[in-house]
């Protein structure tokens, strides 16, 4: 290894690494924050249209997806605890469960979107011309916000996939698991964003 590369790795700073991750999470939070501002503004401008549009979203799918994400968050947290106790295998299984749950979330999302698209409710879709302004905006925000969230789920799953590899190769161990913790932080953030998206889109009555 040359000296140049050595500088960055001269010492390990877990707290610094975690701090970097948290700061990155803030940027994600404010990325969605910008959309929450839009959501709040338009909901204020079109309260009735939003109510009508939200009726057409499937609360059951939304609820199931919420439980899936919460549980996957739990297993990530547990997997760190397992690694700390040197239960490497258990830790990997828990992460695999997370990937399965995250995958199931995406599958549900896929069916939800395709039902809507099937009914012609999508940007420039045939049904959109019959909708009021507020409903068009609602679905616009719905597609963008849940779509961007789904993108984050995919990225999170890829991160966790890497973590499984790292654990199996012994690069993340009971006394060196900051990468796993950072991946976990990212996954929890994805969960938190959904915690807010869910009532705002599915539970307006």
């Amino acid at each position: 290894m040359n000296n140049e590369a050595a500088i960055g790795h001269a010492h390990r700073d877990d707290l610094g690494s975690k701090m970097g991750m948290w700061l990155f999470l803030f940027t994600e939070l404010l990325l969605f924050g910008g959309m929450f501002i839009l959501y709040a503004s338009y909901r204020y401008m079109y309260p009735d249209n939003f109510k009508v549009a939200a009726m057409h979203l499937d609360t059951l799918i939304g609820s199931v997806n919420t439980i899936l994400l919460l549980t996957s968050s739990l297993t990530v947290a547990l997997s760190i605890a397992a690694l700390q106790r040197k239960q490497t295998r258990f830790s990997v299984y828990l992460l695999m469960f997370t990937i399965v749950a995250g995958g199931a979330f995406l599958v549900n999302k896929y069916f939800e979107w395709s039902t809507k698209i099937h009914h012609g409710i999508y940007p420039k879709g045939p049904e959109m011309a019959n909708l009021s302004d507020g409903e068009v905006i609602f679905y616009g925000l719905y597609y963008v916000m849940t779509g961007l969230h789904a993108l984050h789920v995919i990225v999170g799953l890829v991160f966790i996939g890497f973590m499984i590899v790292f654990i199996l190769r012994g690069k993340q161990t009971f006394d060196n698991y900051q990468k796993l913790e950072n991946a976990g932080l990212y996954w929890h953030l994805v969960d938190i964003i959904w915690i807010f998206l869910f009532p705002l889109f599915y539970l307006i009555h």
Partner: peptide, 8 residues
């Protein structure tokens, strides 16, 4: 979200 941030 407070539960998730504080504990998880």
């Amino acid at each position: 979200s407070l539960l998730v941030t504080n504990y998880f």
